[in-house]
Each structure stands twice: as C-alpha cells, then as structure tokens.
Simulated assay, not measured.
Amino acid sequence: MDISEARNRIVATADGLYNAKGIQAVGMDELRTAAGVSLKKLYQEFPSKSSIVMAVLERRHQSWTEGLDATVRQAADPRAKLLAIFDYLAGWFCQDSFRGCGFINSFAELGAVSPEVADYARKHKESFQEYVAGLASEAGAPPYLAPQLSILAEGAQTTAAIAGSPEAAGQARGAAEVLIDFALGRTA
C-alpha cells in the first residue's frame, strides 16, 4: 500500500507535537494547521485521533528498532553489542527533541483509557526485551542478564527525561558492564 505524502506529513507532525506537548494537549485543528492539510484531508487519512496516535506509535517503534539495531550492528563483539544499547541511548538523550520514551509517555497519558495504546506500549517493550535476550544469548550469557539490562535501559530513559540530562546513559552503561562481566564470568 502506497502511503501518501499527506499521511506521512500528518504522522511526522503529530509525532513532534505529541512529543513536545503530550497527546491530549494537541487538538485536531492544531495538528491540521501544523501539518498543512485540510481538516477533510486529515480525516480522509485518519478517521480518528486514536488512529493517528497508533500511527505515531508505529513510527516510533520502527525508528527505535532501526536506530538501536544500526548502533548495535556496529559493535565489534557480543559484549560490545550489549553495551551498544547504552551508547544508542546516550546519543538519543542528547537530542534536543528528547522528552523520554514515547511509549512510556503514551502509556502514562492514555494507558488507563486506551487499551489499544496500552497494548502497543507493552508489545514495544516486550520486543525490546526479546531483542536484548537475543543479544545476551549470542554473548553466551545466562537468561537472567537480559531482563536486568532491559530494566537498566528503561530506568535510564525515565531518569534522563526527568533530570533533563543525558548522564543516565553513561551511568546505566557502567552498571551494565558490571552485570555483563559477572554474567560472563569475567573478573576485573
């Protein structure tokens, strides 16, 4: 299916506005104006605000997955691939647009009233945990390491957003090194 230019523009604009202001704070008229489309075109592309929110979450999932994987693939060995997760976070946290994890933010804002948003946020987090589990397995680490590293990454995202500082990525990376080395039986 060919995605229209207007659809892409609407999703990209909604993503930026939702990230900056929150989902509920952005009305359809503001989105229409910012995207440069008519209200009719907006509703032709998306029958409801919830359909726009889901398209934004899908876009964020794809962006996260591709960006993280590109960083991890550059790492030289399995241990470095696990640590590259935190290198990816460090780069993301330094971006001017960083406002925390869009899935955590969406879940906090809409999870109680939108089962669709809550379910998608859960699936996104599960896919990250599965990704980390695959990297840990490739490194020869025991299964307990992946959830530990996932929790470190999630905590770093929240801490960086609240503190407004990228330092959490480095701190989490340091903790990850200790956990990885212990799990792999390495000593300092």
Rank of each mutant, 00 (worst) to 15 (best):
T187Y: 14
N105M: 08
A75D: 01
S63A: 15
E138I: 03
L152K: 11
A76L: 12
A35P: 06
S38I: 12
A90L: 07
F86M: 08
R122G: 09
Q171K: 12
A108Q: 14
A188M: 11
C101I: 00
A133W: 00
Y18L: 07
A84W: 07
Q148R: 14
G111R: 07
A121H: 05
G134T: 02
L145D: 00
Y43V: 00
E167A: 14
T159Q: 14
G134V: 04
A84G: 06
G134M: 02
Y18A: 09
P78L: 01
E58K: 13
R9I: 01
G155M: 09
E109L: 00
L68I: 13
V72H: 07
G174F: 04
D77P: 04
K125I: 05
L89M: 09
E138T: 11
F103Q: 01
I180V: 15
D2V: 13
K49S: 07
H61F: 11
S137Q: 14
L135C: 01
D15T: 13
L149H: 10
G100H: 10
A76E: 12
N8C: 03
P166M: 08
A136R: 00
A133G: 15
I104K: 09
A75K: 00
L31T: 04
E116F: 04
E66L: 15
P147M: 05
N105Y: 06
V26I: 12
I3G: 02
A76W: 06
W92K: 14
L110M: 08
L17N: 09
L89E: 12
S137E: 15
D87M: 00
A139M: 04
L57C: 04
G134P: 01
V132E: 01
A169G: 06
Q157Y: 14
E30T: 10
R173K: 15
A35C: 07
V37Y: 06
